[in-house]
Amino acid sequence: MLSESLEVEKEIVDDFKKILGADFIDGQVQRKGRVYIKVKTDAYKKAIEHAVEKWNTYHLSTISGVDLGENIELLYHLLDPKAKITITIRTEIPKSDPKIGTVSDILPSALVYEREVYDLLGVIFTGHPDLRRLVLPEDFPEGVHPLRKEWKPEEVK
């Protein structure tokens, strides 16, 4: 819509660019209230901390994991209800060594969401106090994570 002004959204992208420097990969304003920031893996925690402190996006809606083939992409959807802005911090990690630090020390609600991503995509969140399967049964084969593209439902028949 033409009447929408995207000033705040653009300001957020510029701010992240300034703070993260070389770790900033891409910033995108999709529409009013939707900002996507792509960062290098090393800086993702700094980016989330910054989003929570500076932009008050205290509400972690969830963590989405996407299998991209070679890599697994993690998206942290952060919301500030007052400003009506969702900042999604995204980063890619190699599927061969899917490890990333936990954010549950900053956002306690991540305790559940990280377990879900671990369960379904096999991402290991280092520093998570209790990283167990969340939804799959206890006797599900070790090291098998169904939301990975190479996994087919026939495997459990």
Binding site: G33, L79, P81, K82, K84, T86
Partner: peptide
């Protein structure tokens, strides 16, 4: 907080 108002 109510998303009907906060994320219309």
């Amino acid at each position: 907080v109510d998303l009907r108002r906060d994320d219309p």
